[in-house]
Nucleic acid binder design. Structure first.
Lengths: 129, 129
DNA sequence: TAGATTCTACTACATAAGTAGTAGAAAGAC
DNA sequence: GTCTTTCTACTACTTATGTAGTAGAATCTA
């Protein structure tokens, strides 16, 4: 398998890297909302662990600080996450969708988009894009 | 807050209880596919822990075995899970939906249903229920 | 009722995840 | 060139999670 599972904090750190691009520990740390900002060394530790897992890598040095960048794509990781979650629900999407709609997480546009995509898929089913 | 977060295994155990209704440790254990079935005492331990968290409770005894039942609803737990997931993605639903469609997790029916619900909500917006 | 079976109630232990402190090296400020 | 700041590289500790063994009580079976 391409890469291991990421925990919540790890994912937050990756989010920072995906958003900011290559960054230092400090930059990642400061990406956390002040209220729930972990200590500098906490972020550092997590980054080191992610490095060990090959999920990110150090690309260069600026001043005395290392600069890190993501080594896996946001999409790949998200897919993995979603699959895990669905696995837990045993694929029963109905309640999931219902909740998304009720909480306004899903817009009509999102849904229409999905519908369009589904239609396309249906039309070309059997083919491997 | 009503109840704590559940880990993956814990969730699987709850799934068993939601599906089977009040059950013994043995019944829950046997709900796992043979290949990845944890030891009896593993399930027992998890059930005890869930009991400590008040997520389930023992309701009676049959023979020398305790019978447990869920003390929180499947819906409530699922909602919580979904919200967590979204939080991690920072609410960006588009990739989530895309992935669901691509992997066939979402049917056209699911989507149409959501669309209908959204329309209803839009029509009655501002109103509660 | 004696032996076999099944459970309970504990205990134990490994790995992961979250959190952070410390010592000393490097760089920046003047 | 010294003083200050900032980082790195370790180390440490706590809680959660997954996993399961053991001793002895309770129940079932002949």
């Amino acid at each position: 398998m391409p890469f291991p599972k990421l925990s919540k904090l790890e994912l937050q750190i990756m989010e920072a890297l995906w958003t900011l691009g290559a960054s230092s520990v400090r930059e990642v740390q400061e990406r956390f909302p002040e209220k729930k900002r972990p200590a500098y060394t906490t972020v550092q530790t997590m980054i080191y662990r992610l490095e060990a897992k090959r999920v990110l890598r150090r690309v260069k040095k600026i001043g005395n600080a290392h600069i890190f960048e993501a080594a896996v794509s946001r999409d790949a990781v998200q897919r993995r996450f979603i699959d895990e979650l669905l696995g837990l629900f045993d694929g029963r999407m109905q309640p999931v969708m219902a909740h998304l709609v009720e909480t306004g997480k899903l817009t009509l546009e999102d849904v229409r988009d999905a519908e369009k995509r589904l239609r396309e898929l249906a039309a070309g089913k059997g083919r491997k894009e």
